[in-house]
Amino acid sequence: MAGGAATGGSAAADTYKSARHWLLLPSWLVLVLVVLAPVCMMLIYSFLTKEFRGGVIWEPTLAAYDQFFFDRGLFGDDPPKIEWTYITIFWRSIWQAGLATILSLIIGFPTAYFIATRPERTRALWVFLVTIPYWVNLLIRTVSMKFLLRDQGPMNDFLISTGLIDDPLRIVNTNLAVQLGLFYSYLPFMVLPIYASVERYNFAMSEAAADLYATKWTTLRRIVLPAVKPGVIAGCILVFVPSLGAFLAPDLLGGAKNFMIGSLIEEQFKGNAGNWPFGAAAAMVLLTMVLILLMIFARQQRRAEASP
C-alpha cells in the first residue's frame, strides 16, 4: 500500500535514541518561543481591558468577545442583538479563501499530475519553474498583478486591440481580483504537496485498473484520488489557511473597501481603533475555526486509514 511508508523504519528510529531529547531541543525551543508563546499572549490579551489608543490594562473582562458577538447599536446602549458585522466579515473571508482554494485545486492538480508523469530527469526542472515566482516578494507580485489587470492596463489594452471586447473589463477593486490574487499567491502550495503524492503513486495500479475494465474516470476517482488524498488535503490546507488571514491581496486588489479577517485584525492594532483585546479576540476566533477545520480533516483521514 502507498500508505505503508508512514509506519516504516522503527529500527532506524532507535539510532539516535540516547541523544533524542537534545536533538529535539532546538525544535522545541522554536515551537515554544515563536508559536506557543505568541498564541498564549494573544489568548491572554483577548481577555484584558482595552487601553485607549492601543495597549491593554491588566483587568480581566469579556468585553472583546462581547463586542464580537453582540450588537449594542451605534452608541453602545441599545439592548444587545446578535452582531452580524463580524460574522459577515468572517464569512466573506471564508468564501474568498474557499474559492481561491477550489481554483488552485482545479489548476494545481493537473499541473502536479503533469509534472509527476514527466521523465525523472526533467521533473526537477518543472518543480523549479513552479517556484520561480517565489523569488520575487509577494507585495511586488501583487502590485504587478494589479498593474496587469487594471482598466487601462496591458491586459485590457490587448483585449480591446484584438477586438474581443469594446469596454475594458472591470476587475481591479472587485472580489474577483482578490480571488485571482490569492489563487496566484498560493498556487505553488497546492502544486507541490500534490506532486509529492502523485510522484509516490505506483502507476502499475492504474494499469491494473484498466486491465479490469475500469474507465479512466473510475480509475481517477477510485484508485488515484484516494492514493494522493493526503497531498490534496495538505495542499488545500496550505492554500486555504493563509488565504483566510491574507490582507495584502484584499487591500491592493480589492481596494480595501470591505474588511477581511486580516484587515479587520490589522485595523485593531495599526488603525484608529487601537483596540488590542478585540484584535486578539478576533484572531482567537479565527484560530479556533482553523483548528476545528484541521481536526475534522485529521479525524476523516484517521477514519479512512482505519477502514479496510
Binding site: F52, L74, F75, T85, I89, N272, N275
Partner: peptide
Amino acid sequence: DEATQAVYDQIWTNLKK
C-alpha cells in the same frame, strides 16, 4: 476623548463591514 472615539470607531467599522 475615549467615549466619543468609540462611536467614531463604530461608524468607521459600519462603513467598511
